[in-house]
């Protein structure tokens, strides 16, 4: 029946019984059509405290609307047993794994060559160089690095895929970053919070930021993720938290909704 509606093919060329005309081979060299990236979803988060740092991430891995697995960690301890540094990577998981392994190896070699572990500040700058080293074929990830600085204070460094970085009090990354970050601005840095009872207009004073206690931060992280799970399909299944203190590194896993 389709042929009834089909405009008659030009004579002398092959006939097709389908509506769509064939694509002919283009002249000259063909272009690569392989796209070397994908997005594996998920979200991460890092918050620095007075004497601790929490790096967290959900454990879902997706491709499109499919869930690859419900447990694929994106927060890693790096640099061997003595190291006090954690790295989270979210975006293209294969690049994330490659990046994690490179930095891990560098930290281990540093320990071997210098007899001491690398400081977070040094590691942070090194990570920036690694990312920028692939400026023209980037690691497609949003990395967050956490540890304790030379004074023992919590330190969080966040990166873009090509190595721009900054030390911050807190940062959310990945699929639900835009959902979590405003919450963090308000709850960690007290943005848009004023000191009550000081009047209105020019009398208003921004509430002063002070480091939060660990219990509060853990609760914030849980709330951030359980909220993100409700509103983002790529976030869920499990919450992995790495907590770095001067005493050592703890790892906590808590289930999230699997829907």
């Amino acid at each position: 029946m389709a042929s009834v509606f089909h405009p008659g093919p030009p004579s002398g060329t092959p006939k097709y019984s389908f509506a769509q005309q064939p694509n002919t081979a283009s002249e000259g060299a063909r272009q690569h059509s392989f796209y070397p990236y994908t997005d594996n979803g998920g979200s991460t988060l890092g918050i620095a405290g007075a004497d601790f740092t929490i790096i967290a991430g959900d454990t879902r891995s997706t491709s499109g609307y499919s869930i690859n697995t419900r447990y694929c960690p994106k927060v890693f301890r790096i640099g061997g047993p003595e190291s006090r540094i954690a790295l989270s990577v979210v975006g293209f998981a294969a690049d994330g794994d490659a990046l994690k392994e490179r930095l891990d190896t560098i930290l281990k070699m540093y320990k071997y060559q210098h007899g001491k572990t690398m400081s977070v500040a040094a590691c942070a700058q090194r990570l920036s160089h690694i990312l920028y080293g692939k400026r023209f074929f980037p690691y497609y990830v949003h990395a967050i690095l956490g540890g304790l600085d030379e004074e023992g204070k919590g330190a969080v460094y966040s990166y873009d895929p090509v190595g721009s970085y900054e030390r911050e009090q807190c940062r959310a990354g990945g699929a639900a970053a835009s959902l979590i970050m405003p919450f963090l601005d308000n709850q960690v840095n007290y943005k848009n919070q004023c000191i009550p009872g000081r009047g209105t207009g020019h009398e208003l004073r921004q509430r002063v930021q002070e480091p939060l206690p660990r219990k509060d931060v853990e609760q914030l992280v849980e709330d951030a993720f359980s909220s993100a799970v409700e509103r983002h399909i790529e976030v869920g299944d499990g919450l992995q938290m790495i907590i770095i203190t001067s005493k050592g590194i703890e790892e906590i896993y808590k289930p999230l909704k699997k829907d």
Binding site: P14, Y16, Q20, P22, T24, E27, G28, R30, H32, F34
Partner: peptide, 24 residues
């Protein structure tokens, strides 16, 4: 599919030009 992609594409048999990698 023949009806979508048309005739067999011989362009990858061209020996000149840049090195070809798997594209599909």
């Amino acid at each position: 599919r023949y009806e979508i992609y048309g005739d067999y594409d011989h362009s990858h048999l061209h020996t000149s030009g840049p090195m070809q990698h798997t594209q599909q």
